[in-house]
Design a protein around this nucleic acid. Structure first.
Length: 558
RNA sequence: AACCCCGUGGUGUAACGGUAGCACAACAGAUUUUGGUUCUGUUUGUCAAGGUUCGAAUCCUUGCGGGGUUGCCA
């Protein structure tokens, strides 16, 4: 199943189709414009899939542009991670890699023109005065005392601002629009501020930096972007975006269209909060497998295809919805079910002795690598007298619907034999030590015996003599609340204290060959990805997502 | 009570004036050497009231509800 089966027909794509049909545009150009001040998350994936997806579907192109107009918050570390993440997601911008800082000179020249034509002025007020002068939602603002200073004076001051004559905050350049406008963005927005800060690309060349509103539309125009797609919070900025495009002699007229940003249950998405999780060590880093970042999901074992399919299926609207994280997990599971190789691993082992199995014998059992793709063939799994099974797969006082191992009961050991539990060995405290079982030689490979006996359950196992130890990190949701943002108190109050559980597991030996970054299925348990923390001696696995567990549901009910 | 945007099952999303469909979730069953997968079926919806129309989720009006906007962040 692929994305292409059902082409999207959201309102943005409809606008684009109309623009193509009417001849307004012959080629579609979009852009993904992150600010390099943090790591990309699943919300960005929605925007990436939208912008790059549209370029692919309509035979256009999509630029990657770093919106690097605020040196105080930005860093090359973020530039590098963003490039890596977009590539990993599966998109390519060819030669179209740009930076807003590439346009600083041109933006400066246009600002000069705005001053010359009386559409901008240098304001000497400080931030507080400007804020006060702007009025509020009910009351109009008042003009700055510097609003009507002669253009030549503003020109001189603006030049001096650039030359570094003033300190941070001493002066700003403002557009001269309307201090009583109902849209606050029109109350003489700031175009340039002074910031004596080191920029990760332009170094110390500049000490004045353009604001988002002033830089973004012009950058779009310079790149001949046809459709500038952004999230809903920029709706009020669109008229200003258009004002600049109209009042400046730009080479193209891009159109801004807004869509709803992605919200997911059981997580937070704001960069500020994600940064806080990292800096206060609630997680191990931006790429912690519990983070909604692309690097976290990659490390968790989410395939890029699953994320792309998710973004495709949630669609694009203006309705501020919250998607169930289960939908994402479902897309991930679909891809993994198709692709992941199957292995057996025991996370919470209990020993089984096969009392009637020869002490020194070892058999290599054949096990299918992936039932969804039988062409992949089989692997060998060693079977001997001592095994491990999952503690959950045995119950002394089992309910009727418990199809696994119980005293006197018989189950199939996957791809091996049918075993019957003869004796339960306990220690002084009553804790189960080991199980003594007998096997039926007529069931080799797990086949049905000739006498027509039936068995309800099949459980996984690992040979105790051949097992490889590994660390397994079992992850759960990072937050306990569906919406940690809306819940009472700080979002940090709702962190799930059990979002990670570390176990030492017993693996079948073939698992030793799985490489870092690969995701496999531990049969009956879930999907697990080899983590970068793995060493020569010990592999580390992250649980990507558990398999559906309908027994847990039945057990939970009774 | 300024201005702007948005209201379709539990959660999302389609239907472009003409049979309210799909996915996830839930429930029931079938298949199964993973209580996985797959397959079949069931339950649940157009925020409200008016209006236009042969016909309204769709167009209009009003109300109600949700969100956004008062950075020298993006």
């Amino acid at each position: 199943m692929s994305d292409q089966d059902n082409p999207s027909t959201d309102f943005i794509r409809q606008i684009i189709q109309d623009d193509l049909k009417s001849g307004k545009h012959n080629e579609i150009v979009t852009r993904f414009p992150p600010e390099p001040n943090g790591y990309l998350h699943i919300g960005h994936a929605k925007s990436i899939c939208l912008n790059f997806g549209i370029a692919q579907e309509f035979g256009g192109r999509c630029h990657l542009r770093f919106d690097d107009t605020n040196p105080a918050k930005e860093d090359t570390e973020y530039v590098d991670s963003i490039i890596e993440d977009v590539r990993w997601l599966g998109f390519d911008w060819g030669d179209n890699l740009f930076y807003a800082s590439d346009y600083f000179e041109q933006l400066y020249d246009w600002a000069v023109t705005l001053i010359e034509t009386g559409k901008a002025y240098v304001d000497d007020q400080n931030a507080e005065e400007i804020s006060k002068g702007r009025g509020n939602l009910q009351t109009p603002g008042t003009n700055s005392p510097y609003r009507d200073r002669p253009a030549e004076e503003s020109l001189k001051l603006f030049k001096e601002m650039r030359e570094g004559k003033y300190g941070d905050g001493e002066k700003v350049l403002r557009a001269k629009i309307d201090m009583a406008h109902p849209n606050m963005n029109f109350r003489d927005p700031v175009l340039y501020r002074i910031a004596h800060a080191h920029h990760h690309r332009t170094a110390d060349k500049w000490c004045i930096y353009p604001m988002y509103d002033y830089a973004h539309g012009q950058s779009d125009a310079l790149e001949h972007i046809t459709h500038s797609l952004c999230t809903l919070e920029f709706e009020h900025h669109r008229p200003l975006y258009e004002w600049f495009v109209e009042n400046i002699d730009v080479p193209a007229t891009p159109r801004q269209i807004e869509f709803a940003r992605l919200n997911l249950t059981y997580t937070v998405m704001s960069k500020r909060k994600l940064l806080q999780l990292v800096s206060e060590n609630h997680v191990s880093g931006w790429n912690d497998p519990r983070m909604p970042t692309l690097s976290g999901m990659r490390r968790r074992g989410y395939p890029a295809e699953g994320i792309r399919n998710f973004c495709h299926h949630i669609g694009i609207t203006k309705y501020q919805s919250t998607h169930d994280v289960g939908v994402l997990e479902n897309e991930v599971k679909q891809v993994l079910n198709r692709d992941a190789l199957r292995f057996m691993a025991v996370l919470d082992p209990i020993k089984v002795i096969v009392t009637n199995y020869p002490e020194d014998q070892v058999e290599e059992m054949d096990a299918v690598k992936n039932p969804e793709n039988p062409d992949l063939g089989t692997r060998k799994v060693p079977f001997c007298r001592e095994l491990y099974i999952e503690r959950d797969d045995f119950m002394e006082d089992a309910p009727k619907k418990f199809f696994r191992l119980k005293p006197g009961g018989e189950v199939r050991f996957r791809c091996a034999y049918w075993l019957k539990c003869e004796e339960v060995i306990k220690d002084d405290t009553g804790e189960i030590q080991e199980l003594h079982c007998t096997y039926d030689p007529d069931t080799r490979g797990g086949e049905n015996p000739p006498d027509g006996r039936k068995v309800k359950g099949t459980i996984h196992w690992v040979s105790a003599r051949h097992a490889v130890d590994a660390e397994v990190r079992v992850y759960d949701r990072l937050f306990k609340k569906e919406n940690p943002d809306a819940a009472e108190g700080s979002f940090l109050d709702h962190l799930n204290p059990n979002s990670i559980e570390v176990k030492t597991a017993k693996l079948e030996p073939a698992l030793a060959d799985v490489e870092i970054g690969e995701t496999v299925q531990f049969e009956r348990l879930g999907y697990f990805c080899v983590d970068i923390d793995s060493t020569e001696d010990t592999k580390v696995f992250n649980r990507t997502v558990p398999l559906r567990d309908s027994w847990a549901k039945i057990a939970g009910k009774s």
